[in-house]
Design a protein around this nucleic acid. Sequence first.
DNA 1: TTGACATAACACCTTTTGGTTATATATAAT
DNA 2: ATTATATATAACCAAAAGGTGTTATGTCAA
Lengths: 107, 107
Amino acid sequence: MNEANKKVDVFQAIADPTRRDVLQLLAIKQRSIAEISSHYDMSRTAIVKHLNVLTEAGLVNGQKLGREKVYYLKPEPLGEVKQWLDYYEQFWNNKLSKLKFLVENED
Amino acid sequence: MNEANKKVDVFQAIADPTRRDVLQLLAIKQRSIAEISSHYDMSRTAIVKHLNVLTEAGLVNGQKLGREKVYYLKPEPLGEVKQWLDYYEQFWNNKLSKLKFLVENED
DNA sequence: TTGACATAACACCTTTTGGTTATATATAAT
DNA sequence: ATTATATATAACCAAAAGGTGTTATGTCAA
């Protein structure tokens, strides 16, 4: 339940292309396991495992609704990735983003 | 050399905490393999493997300098991560940007 | 209450990951 | 030329990841 017992790092959760794709599906709307797995060639069991990883990373949550389990996106943990990424922004884009980084971190 | 022969996805490359830590080290300055591995308990061979993964993702590059091989950061592939992340920002950043606005304008 | 359906729980297999040690090669210093 | 240092490479191993299929359980609907 708590944010504290994340067993899976969010970086690891988004490392898999299928999981990123599932996130994309759930970004549009919430979906049942059956509906999600209908988009892929792999077995429903495999999709459930991916959903479990995403759940442990706090990126999705599943709610039982009747006899279905409906998953929805929880994007908050992506903030950690964004924060990590912001540090490196100073190194690649243009001088503008470098300036932006410096200004936003000047204290 | 080419962007085309990336064998490793950048998302996968940054999934490992050790590799993220190595990136951090190289962000400060370029370093030889020996210097990098001196920061860790694991063997130099293990570090070299991580460096190979990072290299295949295009995130670092190593240049032979005398008998040393000096690695340096190549942050460009992180742009792909940022781009991916930007899409999801709309889902959570509403609260955050409001808060950011409040904090930045509280004078 | 029976049948169909959605999900859960297993058991199992293969590949990849992340690490080890040992040995070889190239360069620098004495 | 010899020795010490830095890296490269190969063989090996354990554990985790990612997939499969089968069976069990719970829920809805006729």
